[in-house]
Simulated assay, not measured.
Amino acid sequence: MSAADFQAQTEVSDDVLARLQIYADLLVKWQAKINLVGPDTIPELWQRHFLDSAQLAPFIGDHKKVVDFGSGAGFPGLVLAGLNPTLNVHLLESDQRKGVFLREVNRAMGCSATVHTARIEAVPSLGADVVTSRALAPLDKLLAFAEMHSLSTGIYLFLKGKRWSEELTNAEKDWKMRLLHHPSRTDPTGMILEISECIHRHEHLE
């Protein structure tokens, strides 16, 4: 997939595409210094990373504050910031070098995302409308993290691979939630889990 293919599939404006192209160019440049993404995914950057992240945008709706866990190279959080500069995006990434990369891309794209180079549990509650994550941790652990940083009215958007159903079964032992799942546009075995009204079952009993 090329940048033009990405634009055709997402219908983003030329300005948005230009921002994301800056991101893509910097990622390729920095990849030579630090391992940001799997090297074999670089030729498929626009599909494997940018489209994979951008597919979350329609589910954000009118929400304004997004907190992205384990941002790594910025997927999906920094892509969402590039798509919509009015979003208040917070990127949580404990790796200092990746944090430097995220800040550089954020500045170069002219976005206003906030980068927190700390562990998720060490950051004071951010009160997110939307929590996102991709390839970070099992669902039950993500839900515990999300509870720390989201409003009670918030939603969680988690990109999950082929074991999503197994992770969901495990998580439902301890968590009660409203769940919608949407097939991934980039991974035939993957799923977007859209979760709301999430509460720990022990809390529910209390």
Rank of each mutant, 00 (worst) to 15 (best):
D40S: 15
L51K: 01
S196T: 11
E197S: 14
R163P: 08
P138G: 06
L168S: 10
A81S: 15
A32D: 13
R178G: 13
L45E: 02
G110V: 07
Q55T: 13
G61Q: 02
W30Y: 09
M109G: 06
N84K: 14
L142N: 02
P85A: 09
V100C: 06
V28M: 12
D187V: 06
F6G: 05
L80G: 00
P76K: 00
R119D: 02
A3G: 02
V115G: 05
Q47D: 15
R163I: 13
N106K: 05
I22N: 12
H49T: 01
H149V: 00
K160G: 00
A57E: 10
V105T: 09
L36G: 04
P183I: 06
S125C: 11
G154F: 06
W164V: 10
H182E: 14
S152E: 14
V115L: 06
P138H: 07
A73Y: 02
G74A: 07
L157A: 09
V79E: 04
V115M: 00
K176Q: 14
D52T: 08
G161C: 06
S94P: 07
L56A: 01
H149D: 08
D187G: 01
F50Y: 12
S150H: 12
S94E: 05
S112D: 14
Q21W: 11
L157W: 06
I22W: 13
L143P: 06
L205W: 12
G74L: 01
L20S: 01
A4W: 10
I120V: 06
V79K: 04
H116C: 09
D52E: 09
T86L: 11
L45V: 04
G99D: 01
F101G: 01
F145I: 00
H202E: 14
S71F: 00
F6Y: 12
K160H: 04
A81E: 04
E11M: 14
L143A: 07
V66F: 00
E194A: 10
G70M: 04
T132E: 00
Q31H: 12
H182L: 13
D140S: 14
G38M: 09
H90E: 14
E197Q: 14
A128K: 05
P85N: 08
T169E: 15
E121A: 07
T153N: 13
K64W: 09
A118E: 08
G74V: 00
V67G: 05
W46T: 03
A135H: 01
I195E: 00
S125I: 12
A32P: 07
R107Q: 15
T10L: 12
A137T: 05
K65L: 03
G161E: 13
A146T: 11
I199W: 10
L78I: 03
W30L: 05
T186S: 01
Q21S: 13
W175K: 07
D187L: 05
L139H: 05
L126P: 06
L126W: 07
G99K: 03
